[in-house]
Amino acid sequence: MQKPTRLALLKDIAEFLNEETETYSMLQGALESLIKGSDFTTGWIFFIDEAGEHEVVSDVSLPGALTKQNSKYMCEGSCWCVQAYQNKKLTKASNIINCSRINLANQAYHEETDGVTHHATVPLKSGDEQYGLLNVAAPHTTHYSEENLELLESVAFQIGSAIKRILLTDQEKEAARISERNRLARDLHDSVNQMLFSVKLTAHAALGMTQEDVSKKAFHVIEETSQQAVSEMRALIWQLKPVGLEHGLVQAVNKYSALLNLEINVQVEGLIDLPNIIEENIYRIIQEAMNNTKKHSHTSTILLKLNQQQHRLLVDIEDEGTGFKEDQVDLQSHGLNNMKQRVKVIHGKITIDTAPDQGTHIHLDIPLK
């Protein structure tokens, strides 16, 4: 099958990127198009955080040697291109003469290299913001032509712009969601919650006025049911709008734990002073963790550690409940997936360490810019 011209390939990739709204599917689709429409036969994309830690977020047709042991050679350790990227010495598409990842994989699994020994790399960026690296390779190729490097740079520019667009769109959507939740919380508080409270007061007053046993029982049931409904409505309003967050994250967490009848031990290092979007999402994540403890862990005690450093926030949420199998983390609740999504929005990392009868430990590492 004839390869498309360079201009046609760039046009196809640009049209695809313009339609994508999710980062990871966008990266995978763009990489697949590049490999299919060029002389490259394999490729992979690293996201790299401010600490220089990398994550493989997309790959196409990796040689078997690089996929062994759960892609060990791709995930572990460092390499020249990641270090050069971190030191801002990698500014354009370049040939990598000696790749430690490929070398180690090829030494261990020489028969499964697909002839790949060298790769080309290019940073993914938009303006002054960097996101990671796009790497590509082809069999029995130790040096990639200027034409191929120019193609790589063009695709990387398109991908970097698409990443920036999606991030900005996600931030706008999150701001809109927060605004809508706040509006709905106000409406519920001002209307439904007040009506339920009025029903409760009316039932209480009627209970004191009637002498009939049947009526007393009926008004008593109405009063208790109304009180339960008021309590549930308050919990729902807290879910929608963290009343009290304006007084700080710690106070909001303490109030919500009291609402759930949970005992929370909060330990703080540093001054907790966070940007609004980070504070909102961190609170929601802690809130979700408390909900999961209440529902699933069979314990009423939580340890929360907050450690704000100069450039990052570390959060640890621990309980000594029943825990669960790590390979069933995503099956535990819709809430855990929400937590992971919120961590992505604020560009952080989440680690969930749990086992049956060993409790649950959630660790968050959030960069602060």
Rank of each mutant, 00 (worst) to 15 (best):
L184P: 03
N193I: 14
E172H: 13
K92Y: 08
N337C: 02
Q83L: 06
V329W: 00
H119F: 07
L240F: 01
Q211Y: 06
Y85T: 05
V243S: 06
L133V: 09
G37V: 03
P356Y: 04
T293W: 01
V214A: 13
E15T: 13
Y24N: 08
E223R: 09
D59N: 11
K72R: 14
K11T: 13
Q310F: 01
F47Y: 12
Q86K: 09
A355D: 10
T121C: 11
M74Q: 12
I285C: 06
L260C: 06
I163A: 12
E146P: 09
S38W: 05
V116N: 04
D12Y: 07
Q358I: 00
F219R: 10
F324E: 05
T121P: 01
V253Q: 06
Y24M: 08
V253M: 06
E223A: 11
S179R: 15
N254V: 02
L331S: 04
G127D: 14
L167T: 14
K11V: 10
L17W: 01
F197W: 13
N106K: 11
E318Q: 06
L168Y: 12
K325W: 00
G321I: 00
L240S: 04
L207N: 14
K68V: 09
S145Q: 10
S300K: 09
D114R: 12
N87T: 11
T42I: 09
E55R: 12
H296R: 12
S100Q: 12
N98K: 08
Y131R: 06
E147M: 13
T210K: 07
P4I: 11
S71Q: 12
A176I: 15
K369A: 11
I264H: 02
P242R: 02
L260S: 08
L7Y: 09
Y131D: 10
G43K: 05
V192I: 15
W80C: 09
A258V: 03
S191A: 14
G244C: 02
K255H: 07
G37N: 13
Q130D: 12
G208Q: 14
K295L: 02
K89W: 06
V155N: 04
S257I: 03
S154F: 04
S231T: 08
E50N: 15
C79H: 07
D170T: 14
A203R: 09
V243F: 01
H54T: 10
F46R: 01
N87W: 06
G29D: 07
L259Y: 05
T141E: 11
E153K: 10
L188S: 11
K88Y: 08
